[in-house]
Nucleic acid binder design. Structure first.
Lengths: 207, 207
DNA sequence: ATCTGATTGTGATATATGACACATTTTTTA
DNA sequence: TAAAAAATGTGTCATATATCACAATCAGAT
């Protein structure tokens, strides 16, 4: 009767090498609570992890891989807000800021993620100020970074925006000058905020 | 020898009618600590309250009045991120997300504000999880709202953006269908993200 | 009250960029 | 391997909007 659970590789938060900064400040008892209320899952490239508009039920921690955070705007036009890399949370802003989730998340490659029950997460915030502090740091950094990029986009032309995104991917996401991200030209244009055709033109110009 | 302190009207956080949601969950001892490390000040219309780029030393709580949050971008082009109304914090994102302050704040009218020492603020976060939780809610709501507006702006044309901003001011800031904000056309255009001339054109068209 | 400077409105113009159409290349499927 | 589908590149064109120039209006100071 335990076969279902045994078939899933049960992770252990206490010994996890990929803990977030916030989870690192939890004590053993709190880690145990987290462990009993989270589950590690593997996701295939292209799968939607979390959809905007649904009620918040779980917070998702990205243990390994790249994810795109996006919204579907007017005329079903997609705007990619950011590329999320390993050791990041998905849906934190929505968890604390609203009842429903605001952004959608899709796997850019095969992933390892952890689903965490939101009530346990909130309980930990309220009983451990250091944990809450680290989360505050996390969401504020996330906000500042994304705002910075969005505002830059609103003030630059095609070339500048393209260059900014390349720099962003190189320095903030891949941490390498030579990188390869599983992004189509279409997705790149949705991240830059220009048309697909113009993305192609800028690329051929830069080469 | 107490004349300096006596000359300033010393506020009392415990009995303050304009407490933030976060401060409302502090206990008497914590309110006392806050009280001893904050100071209420009056600001005249047009004054700069806080400048981007400087080291964070105080968090500022807006007790009364309207403030514009902005950054000076490329070619000294100003982008107004949002209009801040009473019972809001200034610089929270920067406090937790970085060492330096990211946005500038100017009084749109005569204000009452409270300067709060950042170390005391951080201490309260760490020792009171409920306080931290309320701050998380605050910064996340702020992020979601501002992102929503910025992304909308990036996907709409002049008319739509103008209409959005009018709605935003009416519903979110003034909470009234007939409102008058001390915003110049120039500032309105910096909030909408279009040129001053086009703002004038849209206004005459709508009338 | 009058002058001066700031703010605002309006017309003409240049241009960056989206949109369309279609060619080419790459990837997936059978 | 061939065929189909998806992704990408390129040329042309329409248009929304920034910019400039200047007129008109408003506000503050003397």
């Amino acid at each position: 009767m335990y076969s279902i659970y045994e078939s899933t590789e049960k992770s252990n938060c206490s010994v996890c090498k990929d803990k977030s900064c916030a989870v690192s400040v939890l004590n053993e008892k709190q880690l145990g609570l987290l462990n009993n209320n989270s589950r590690e899952i593997e996701i295939k490239k292209g799968e939607i992890i979390l959809r905007s508009g649904i009620l918040n039920s779980h917070i998702i921690y990205l243990k390994k891989g790249y994810v795109k955070e996006f919204i579907v705007g007017l005329n079903k036009k997609i705007k990619i807000l950011q590329i999320i890399k390993q050791r990041s949370y998905m849906g934190l802003h929505s968890l604390f800021g609203d009842k429903i989730n605001h952004y959608s998340y899709t796997a850019l490659e095969d992933l390892k993620i952890c689903y965490i029950d939101i009530n346990v997460f909130k309980k930990l915030v309220k009983e451990n100020g250091d944990f809450a502090y680290e989360l505050l740091v996390y969401v504020c950094k996330d906000s500042l970074n994304n705002f910075y990029r969005l505002i830059n986009q609103s003030q630059k032309n095609t070339n500048g925006r393209f260059a900014d995104v390349i720099l962003y991917l190189s320095e903030n996401i891949c941490n390498s000058q030579h990188f390869e991200l599983p992004l189509t030209r279409q997705e790149l244009s949705e991240l830059i905020g220009i048309s697909r055709e113009n993305t192609a033109r800028v690329i051929s110009k830069f080469k």
